[in-house]
Amino acid sequence: MAIMTYAAAARLAVAEAMRADSNVWCIGEDLGRGGVFQQYQGLREEFGAQRVSDAPISEAAIMSAAFGAAMVGTRPIVEMRFADFALCATDELVNQIAKARFMFGGQSRAPMVIRKPMGMWRSSAAQHSQSLESWYTHIPGLVVVCPATPQDNYSMMKAAIQCDDPIVYLEHKDIWANEGEVDPDYHYEFGRAEIRRGGGDVTLVSWSNTANLAADAGRDLSSQGIEAEVIDLRSLWPWDKSTVINSVKKTGRLIVAHESVQVSGFGAEIAATVAEHALQALKAPITRIGAPRSLIAYAPNLENQLRVTGQMMVDAAIRLCR
């Protein structure tokens, strides 16, 4: 066990995978200097410029050249710098990478980890702050994961690099410096949620940094006599339906919280699934907490208008349990 940051945990997983398999390599802008968030710090020195490769500001080519290289046997880790810029490579991800194996009748694979740092961070405004995870869950062929802790950013990165599917790997920009214990032997299984906190009164489902806020909210609620079961989904496709449904069957109450826009957010999928499979268990209406459908602004007070907070979860839980 070691204490390390969220950024360092992923970096360690990448370094270990690169040592173990010479086919693993990284490609993206400014990686040679450690990446814009230092998540590649030191890797160039150890693995050289070919395997920790700088790229032109050509997001479509970064995505798609990595895909071409994956089709001929390498295992690329693709850095998109900001999730927002990955939109410049949408055709490459959605029409090519996600579909190639199927369209070609199983002749090809795209073992790729596509890193997309997402979320609100330091007044980055509308084009550098988005959380678009639900978009990717709509695309057959893609695996979509959102690690929230250093442990998960280590274990999930390791699992992602070993996986033969293309993985949309969404790290949250606001938690690179978060510290936590990392057990290198912990094995992450795709589609398995983590119960961050057990409780019998209300189920609180979240992911990415919002799951950290949910864990704090769970502690708060406990001091007020409400025991929330806090579930960090960790992966959105596949997602851990049985853990969520079993929890709702126990608590009878569900809150789903995410930083992204509430409309058509992944919370809607969870709410609908629970309504289909556990309606009878519900003692109160399902509550969704997501951002209003407006644009992320620069001024801190405006940015805060759209921020999903732990307090919102506390308030919602009290409302549901009262």
Binding site: G68, A69, M71, A100
Partner: peptide, 30 residues
């Protein structure tokens, strides 16, 4: 497509194969 003869696919999206092909060459180089 016929990967058994090195044919890595036609493409329904005009020009999309250009960057993929560059990537296949990148893979060869690596």
């Amino acid at each position: 497509a016929d990967f058994s003869v090195g044919m890595l696919g036609a493409n329904g999206v005009v020009a999309a194969n250009i960057t993929i092909a560059a990537g296949a060459a990148h893979g060869i180089k690596l």
